[in-house]
Amino acid sequence: MTTPDSDGLLPEQLLRLTRRVHRIQKRQLEQRGLGVTPAQSRLLRTLAHYDAPPRMADLAERLEVVPRAVTTLVDGLEASGKVRRVPDPANRRVIRIELTDDGLKALRELHDVRRSAAEEILTPLTDQQREVLGGLLDTLVDGMPPQGRDC
């Protein structure tokens, strides 16, 4: 029995698209001179999702990387003034990571870079194609078809 993707083309297309998005984002980061790598960008975005400054172990778990990788990223971001290490008020031996004002500014610029990269990718699509793609991506992200989703 053959499937619509019996030759395995879809996974390859998805991987190629992901790589293209990353290349565009990296190029735009370099052009804007933000001094942030894609990995640091991901850490900044992750930090923004916490209500209170997280521990490095929390970041490593959320990013699904080893703690040493987070230490290296934080070191670079701290050197550029985008994050700072702060002692935990309940346990001064615990260090937490928080965004600085420069980090928040960089985060806004990174958001613009991501939107610009997405727009560059989506330019060839019509409004109707974008709508269809959006529905398909929602299904892939949520892992269920639209009719099974709570709206």
Rank of each mutant, 00 (worst) to 15 (best):
T2W: 15
D5K: 10
S6A: 14
S6V: 09
D7C: 13
D7V: 15
D7Q: 12
G8F: 10
G8D: 09
G8Q: 03
L9F: 14
L9R: 15
L10Y: 06
E12N: 14
L14D: 02
L14V: 11
R16T: 14
L17H: 05
T18D: 11
T18A: 15
R19W: 04
I24G: 03
Q25W: 03
R27K: 12
Q28T: 09
Q31I: 11
G35K: 02
G35P: 13
T37Y: 00
Q40W: 00
L44G: 02
L44Y: 00
T46V: 14
T46E: 12
P53M: 07
R55Y: 06
R55H: 10
A57V: 15
A57L: 13
L59G: 01
V65M: 00
P67F: 07
R68C: 05
A69T: 02
A69S: 02
A69H: 07
V70P: 02
T72R: 12
D75M: 10
L77R: 01
E78D: 12
S80K: 08
K82T: 01
R84F: 07
R85W: 02
V86H: 03
P89V: 06
A90N: 13
N91F: 04
R93H: 05
I95M: 07
I95D: 10
I97M: 00
I97C: 04
L99H: 03
L99C: 07
T100G: 06
T100I: 03
T100Q: 11
D101K: 13
D102W: 03
G103T: 04
L104N: 00
L104I: 01
A106I: 08
R108Q: 08
R108G: 04
H111I: 02
R114G: 05
A117G: 08
A118Q: 13
E119R: 05
T126E: 07
Q129S: 12
E131V: 07
E131Q: 14
V132P: 09
L133R: 04
G135M: 12
L136F: 03
V141K: 08
D142A: 12
P146T: 09
Q147V: 15
Q147W: 15
G148L: 15
D150C: 04
D150G: 10
D150V: 08
